[in-house]
Design a protein around this nucleic acid. Sequence first.
DNA 1: TTGTAAGCGTTATCAA
DNA 2: TTGATAACGCTTACAA
Lengths: 347, 347
Amino acid sequence: MDRRITEVGRVSATMRDVARLAGVSVKTVSNVVNDFPHVKSATRDRVLAAIAELGYQMNFSARNLSRGTTGMIALAVPELSLPYFAELSDAVIAAAAERGYTVLVEQTGGVRERELEVLASERRRMTDGLIFSPIGLRPADAARLEVDYPIVLLGERALHSSVHHVAMANADGARAVAEHLLARGRRRIAVIGSFDERGPSAGSLRTRGFLDALDEAGVRHDPARTGEALRWSRTTGAAAMRQVLDRGVGFDAVFGLNDVLALGAMRVLHERGLRVPEDVAVAGFDDIEDGRFARPSLTTVQPGRAQIARTAVELLVERLAGGEPAAGPGGEERVAQFELLVRESTG
Amino acid sequence: MDRRITEVGRVSATMRDVARLAGVSVKTVSNVVNDFPHVKSATRDRVLAAIAELGYQMNFSARNLSRGTTGMIALAVPELSLPYFAELSDAVIAAAAERGYTVLVEQTGGVRERELEVLASERRRMTDGLIFSPIGLRPADAARLEVDYPIVLLGERALHSSVHHVAMANADGARAVAEHLLARGRRRIAVIGSFDERGPSAGSLRTRGFLDALDEAGVRHDPARTGEALRWSRTTGAAAMRQVLDRGVGFDAVFGLNDVLALGAMRVLHERGLRVPEDVAVAGFDDIEDGRFARPSLTTVQPGRAQIARTAVELLVERLAGGEPAAGPGGEERVAQFELLVRESTG
DNA sequence: TTGTAAGCGTTATCAA
DNA sequence: TTGATAACGCTTACAA
């Protein structure tokens, strides 16, 4: 039994060992392991017995080399510490596992350079495809997305017309928030979390949807009510809220471009003695778990995270299986359904 | 130039192509790529030029097969949706990247069966080692941890005396919380989040540290002030808090066995009209970001997450590099330093 | 239905 | 300092 000892003392049987023990050829073992149809059941049983006896496990490096694939897909997100991306990764890993794929999570920090790097990195040779959630890229970078491997983007069409992508209803969701706040009688709404103007980012789309709704209602938005926060976190949301407060412009509502921003802002409002929602209504976007348990609980937009994860994996796996050319003529777009969740923070 | 087209239309040069173009042997290309010392710099330059011209990228499956390693380590955690584990994974991925390793995150759901599965899964053949944070395993499962590949556990010694592990100061941290609450004059402290009695889980250790401190102070703990929550989340924390409230036992403080439990509990206190910290002081454990921005901000124990991640990766990589036998005679134990962070929720 | 044998693209051994 | 050449363990035509 020609077992082999690797440098860490790991003992492992190969298909040859199994074949020898079962008295068949390597090809037959391979057939059994891969559930190929035409294997006599007596043979199969003998092989399975040998596998069990030797504790044989597939050597994936060998399989991958031979097949030219790896069975892994990469998921590139800004940061796992951001709850939205943690919850998204959770969902993607689960969806991929269902289809037999393993996920490799990459963190870009949301920094353009590192996002570009992810696209061209040698690591891409370790995975069969990529699910990519860029937030630092700009329209000028669109061409860099036309890679020669299967890719699915999480984000907006504008950035990449020829690449499959799964979008969330950023503009419509934000519009729904605005309409909700207006319906509650709020007219002086601050916006927390700005964005890089150069891109059709989630930030710009949400802002646009929000402003459009205000326009249509004949309500003017005072730019002094916008708080800057390039990176989106509780900390930056708090800072942006302070910025607006310190300008002395009045406001009766706050729209955080996402939930962590809104939570950071809410924290500052509390420190400054403002009551939510009595003095100021607050709403966010993303429906992260913290928002449900915040005090007060946070009104937000549930962007269809689970659906996004599932759809992205489906689109990617389809292409992997289909052998479809990587950069097709027109990228398919799927937009997830959103839902406005009204909670305490907006009364 | 003997390029090859894979089924997804991906074009890739091999070392052979590079060798041919540079007029050297494959071995020389390999030497250059791997920074082997004895390569004439003229040769090296020619090879690098060829690499650049062809856009050559390493085929990792081939390298892995040949080397018998994969350059990947697995990290098994309960759920990425739990902020503590999301932040931990972030740190592990970063620490591993610094040392040239890629991380594969596995989710166990904290379920014993899936944790056992992770240990024996064929997936282990895809990674060189495992960093494992079990929460469902019991002492009876200790033997299952004696695997034949390098492993580092995040957790307590009791479960696995012969395996390297990185522990947090669960008991001491909880003791610090208790002492803090006692110093604030609280005597009737509820505990939220119970644990499987059969294991030296974080839950049991934290509880023990907490109770010891009470004992030493001559304060008796009424079991009616314990709220059950096997899975630790905001939702279960809220439910456990309701359970205690509904029993009608009075209390002037709450210790959530971790932060999400405490946040869930705090939410319920608010709903029931109890003021934090005036009526009830609340403390947690883990120092997740939400706690800093909660209202009121949450007193907690910072368990040394970054240090834990770094140490775990270091221990594992050392063993991978050192070719040390997998299950040594005595597992090393490293305990991270903790810090009590006093914030608003305890006045 | 099963076997033979030629790859897959590296690394490692041993000469030169 | 470099080059042949044989592994590494699996898949896959092609035969039988």
